[in-house]
Design a binder for these strands. Structure first.
Lengths: 195, 195
DNA sequence: AGCCAACTAGATAGATCGCTCTAGCGAGAC
DNA sequence: GTCTCGCTAGAGCGATCTATCTAGTTGGCT
């Protein structure tokens, strides 16, 4: 079956998320994917960099879908934000504090060392920001305020991941969920069209 | 002179910050420090892990001092917070978006792969959180609120670093500075003892 | 002066790195 | 049938990784 490419991408997503790009060997990825060595360079002639770019694009899109699903799960946006942060915390507890954002570690690793991958990740981040901004606007937040608020929410989420994974306590994520919900409530109340 | 150990720590701090732990070779550190190979295992018999632990402890303490300096630079805490985020943004622009938090990249790399280093970084993070909580309390924030607020401020800072370094735009840091200042203002106004 | 400890210096081992190469398998085209 | 092509399969290359080992140098103490 032609699912070898998918298996390789699945394995690299998990491994990059846990140990980063430089910390993950190609042989380790292939072993985890149960794929032979030659297959990688057939599917990804560009080698590790091309595999990383493909992994990031796919994982970035999937993660956006996952988070967007939580944020759209009900009519009350602040409640959904609280729930999304709490859900991320629950996932971390279940996975021994391993499964947070699939591209954050790689983002920091390559920001100053691999211009191509840096741009690939920047595009993913921009698409997240655009999506969240649009969601805030559609809930009644003013355009300028939504841009700033989306930055803050995404930063709080990614930053809390760093502390939660390292300290193995979920406090930071829960505190951020609460604070972000409060900020969004404030932005909605300031809106004239509020019913 | 006996400053070889310091030179090695300086070099490893800079390199770990830019390219992470796994992405930095020992030879690269020694070349940057102008130190011979044998010296490393004299000063750090435990090898790379011991060097990493020493680098993290020292850099973590220095960074706390740096940030605390900004937060204490004047009587108006919200203004200082805004200024601290803006100052971090300025530093990033000056260093081609390389110099943010010296231990964030390593924190994500080792969280699920190196228990000893994970604990070392967790101690640094806890000390940061304690310090910021105490500062908030001394400014009149209630104890419980200060604990949560310190989590949020630190998360926003670290999370914004990820986006700023990757997108090479400072928007996220500035938006977070504004939002964190607003949150602190709110926590201070809710306080009865407000003059 | 004589000596020891601290430190510098680098060759080298053994494993692992990303990657290239050739060979073989199996399904569809004709 | 048999030819072709997408894909699997893994041996092996040169480079690089961390770490060990022995030697040489330096500075300070008695």
């Amino acid at each position: 079956m032609g699912n070898t490419r998918e298996r390789i991408l699945d394995a690299s997503t998990e491994l990059f998320r846990r140990q980063g790009l430089a910390g993950t060997g190609i042989k380790q990825i292939l072993a985890a994917a149960n794929a032979p060595f030659g297959s990688l360079y057939h599917h990804f002639p560009g080698g590790k960099d091309e595999l990383a770019a493909a992994t990031i694009s796919r994982a970035g899109q999937e993660y956006a879908t996952l988070v967007a699903g939580k944020l759209l799960d009900g009519p009350d946006l602040p409640a959904n934000i609280r729930a999304a942060f709490a859900s991320a915390a629950a996932t971390l507890v279940e996975t021994d504090f391993a499964d947070a954002c699939p591209i954050e570690t790689v983002a920091l690793e390559v920001a100053s060392t691999n211009e191509g991958l840096r741009q690939t990740i920047a595009e993913v981040f921009d698409s997240w920001h655009e999506g969240l901004t649009a969601l805030l606007v559609s809930n009644g937040v003013s355009a300028e305020e939504a841009v700033a608020l989306a930055h803050v929410i995404l930063s709080a989420l990614e930053g809390a991941f760093v502390f939660v994974r390292t300290t193995q306590r979920t406090d930071a994520l829960l505190a951020c969920g609460e604070a972000m919900a409060t900020l969004v409530e404030g932005a909605l109340e300031a809106r004239p069209g509020r019913e």
